[in-house]
């Protein structure tokens, strides 16, 4: 298994590594001079971090709004006082990150939960706003919460849910047969507007890569929700665990309401 620590997919993580290294040495007074220098560099990289989405592939114009509670609080207060503050804030981060992207998506063949052949663009370009997430039915930690979030979103949308299309793409298509997906959909009371997609492994990976959520192995996947108002509009990407109310709020903001 992948028991190594996954490195956080935070742009500018190199700067963070450095600061962590520093953190381990702050007890040594001898390092103080170097530290002051490094921290000025650190702060600069953190600024760049807001915009540098090199971790995300695909052509895109990233517009970042950081919605995490107080992720960078440590820096404002002056890192010298408490070099751990930033990291402590990271650990307790309960917010999510919103960004906008233009993904160049290819039309990938997929299979819906009735076992019918379909394709990515046929599913996405249905003349409606869409929300997309990625799950697999035997996933234990992230997916049940992601799916419960969609379940909650559909109930909060109420009658409005008929105007949106919700799509969950399986990242374990070898195991997730249409029948298994139907069972899973039932578990979460998925309405008619919510489709689950599977297909071949290669095609599932192609879709994940298209949205820059592919992490090499299903056990490495991360909680990401994507939404788009209509064909040609930018994708709103939500990284992290957002509450259903937040997703509905982002959805309404995207629609311009």
């Amino acid at each position: 298994m992948n028991w190594k620590y996954p490195l956080p997919r935070i742009p500018g993580s190199r700067a963070m590594v450095l600061s962590a290294a520093l953190a381990l040495t702050v007890s040594g007074a001898a390092a103080l001079a170097a530290e002051a220098d490094e921290h000025s560099g650190h702060a600069a990289s953190e600024q760049a971090m807001e915009h540098d989405h090199s971790g995300h592939a695909a052509p895109e114009q990233a517009m970042e709004h950081d919605h995490s509670a107080d992720e960078h609080a440590g820096h404002d207060a002056g890192a010298a006082d408490d070099p751990h503050a930033h990291h402590r804030a990271m650990m307790q981060q309960t917010g999510y990150r919103r960004s906008e992207h233009d993904y160049a998506l290819h039309d990938v063949p997929l299979v819906d939960m009735q076992g019918n052949q379909t394709s990515l663009l046929a599913q996405l370009d249905a003349g409606k706003p869409v929300m997309v997430n990625f799950i697999f039915t035997t996933c234990t930690t992230i997916c049940p919460v992601m799916s419960a979030t969609f379940q909650q979103v559909q109930s909060e949308l109420g009658a409005e849910r008929d105007q949106v299309r919700m799509i969950s793409v399986s990242i374990d298509p070898e195991h997730d047969t249409p029948a298994r997906l139907r069972e899973y959909a039932e578990l979460f009371d998925a309405g008619d507007q919510w489709e689950f997609l599977t297909g071949s492994l290669a095609n599932s990976i192609a879709v994940q890569k298209g949205f820059d959520v592919y992490r090499g192995n299903k056990m490495n996947h991360e909680p990401t929700t994507l939404m788009r108002k209509g064909q040609g509009d930018p994708w709103v990407r939500i990284d992290g665990l957002a509450s259903a109310a937040d997703i509905v709020k982002e959805y309404h903001a995207m629609l311009g309401r």
Partner: peptide, 13 residues
């Protein structure tokens, strides 16, 4: 002056 300590910390980490 360049301190080696951050580097050692990095390695240890």
């Amino acid at each position: 002056m360049i301190s080696l300590r951050p580097f050692l910390g990095f390695l240890l980490f």
